[in-house]
Nucleic acid binder design. Sequence first.
DNA 1: TTGAAAGCGCTAACAG
DNA 2: CTGTTAGCGCTTTCAA
Lengths: 333, 333
Amino acid sequence: MKRNGRATIRDVAAFAGVSLTTVSDALSGKGRLPDATRDKVLEAAQQLNYRPNAIARGLRSQSLGLVGIVIAPAEAATLSSVWYWASIATHMSEAILANGFAPVLLPHNAATLTKLPIPLDGALLVDPLDDDEVLAYFRSENVRTVTIGRDIRNPQGPWVDEDNEAGVAELLRLTVKPGETVAVVTLSARKSYVVDGLRGAERWAHSVGSKLVEYRCKSFDDAEVDQALLQVRQERAKVILAQNDRLASKLLARLKAAGAEVPGDVRLISATDAPDLQHTEPSITSLKQHPERLSEIAARTLFDVLHGVPTQERQLVPMEIAFRRSAPAVGDG
Amino acid sequence: MKRNGRATIRDVAAFAGVSLTTVSDALSGKGRLPDATRDKVLEAAQQLNYRPNAIARGLRSQSLGLVGIVIAPAEAATLSSVWYWASIATHMSEAILANGFAPVLLPHNAATLTKLPIPLDGALLVDPLDDDEVLAYFRSENVRTVTIGRDIRNPQGPWVDEDNEAGVAELLRLTVKPGETVAVVTLSARKSYVVDGLRGAERWAHSVGSKLVEYRCKSFDDAEVDQALLQVRQERAKVILAQNDRLASKLLARLKAAGAEVPGDVRLISATDAPDLQHTEPSITSLKQHPERLSEIAARTLFDVLHGVPTQERQLVPMEIAFRRSAPAVGDG
DNA sequence: TTGAAAGCGCTAACAG
DNA sequence: CTGTTAGCGCTTTCAA
């Protein structure tokens, strides 16, 4: 028994009167020992309350079974303020644990990661930015990584995503009459879901001959959002497509503050969903995401990569539309 | 250079033409070497892109710098559905990282933890249950743990919490007239914040001579909640105190479904806050929590424990009241 | 079938 | 001031 208070494999060997190898084999079920020997060892291990030292084991295998989870933040948002991320983090955790690995919650910051010498077996990166520094860091450190969304300037490596392009195109097809002008309000285009959503909107606009105008807000500030809305009005757009749920909520609040009727004067749709959007007044039509499914697929893909199983470079999950009061399906009136 | 592709301390020593110790010292800044030697080693390390192997280092120190975060769930709730937990998880992560440790997100399940041989330096456990199995597991494994809230049947070990007892007492004092009957609706009393809140309510009731009745729902089901509300009406309670924000939202929804006016017929207050409560109709008066502050204190306390610094057994943070429309301050009308 | 011995990469005693 | 050596606890050849 060592100072630590914990039995080592040596103690077990001595106690059972066998060699180290025998203990190791007996516990890991490797070599084919006689049942009698094995039982004796198991018994000894039990008695001594022996638990193999994970670090020592890791030193040999150069793996501790740790998988990093990194979520790239957006403007002034954190995991706790964005339903989608909290949901992703939860489900990723579960998927990682189900595979016998442990999830480590890491910040989207290469400098911090460099200083934090944690030996990761792999990583899941949510919503990478363009030229994502963390993704680059993982590559340089040889940490296998699967992303949800992709680095638009550097889209190598396996990734998983909602099919934002098709989703937005379909959303517009079902909520906007051909010919109506649509204003797209965005915050930044550093993430692939924004780029893909815009592409979907353009594709739709082309196909039905609608006009599409884009406004980019610098922040969620009232002044910024009001400025965008002013331009929307000048263009006489009948529909506003918000890049995401938080922006949609904000736009709705400012529209109401300005006395505009939704959906009477202008309709509002959001390219991402969140529980909040059901409870606004009026509730907001949006595209539903699948954090649980994406998390599972991403984890599955990562473990395939780690085990050398060939994987698909990209996997897209179709989105669904949640019709709500801010923009009913065309034809519904 | 090893098969791994990564330089080891040996490679650096060979490259710099010095011994292993010299490299180790030069890099860790231990022994006082001549600057020339040190620079030579640093140079070599740089050239070879040497990064110390964290697992090997961990084997010596028996520590990898991992801190577990465990959140005990409640009825059908998960991290992503409860604002408070998502917020706690985020802030705990940050606090742990700021101390040079890495946060591991673990499930509240002793069986899973047993199978997951992750060498934790310590753990933060949020909202332990009574006779908490994970807390017991950590103790048996000698993992130093600080809890947010306490195990009510086994309150040993340092813990941090909101001052729920004083908070609830104050909340009632400011929103209920002496003599009015208050109905407390709970879901379970396995967590300390519920027990403490009830105690606060009883203290208040005693001091002003009010009647207090408690109803326990088995779940969030409509039928369960309606049953509780039926009893509230029979008791002619003028105020309902909900154990937490989710229950408060649910109660409000069922009150409205039954045609009751809030705050006209009955007032509603919640013992915990969440952003949602600002947006219900009417908004709900509640006690504000401090996930950020608790996370920081808990992390600070854990690291003190790990460093052998004496710590306080319990630390309480005073709560504040968010007055909203469901229950204005008495005197306001 | 079992055991002895050699590491995994690093650090800390202890010599020189 | 620098180098040699002995482990940390485990797994994995390779002999016996």
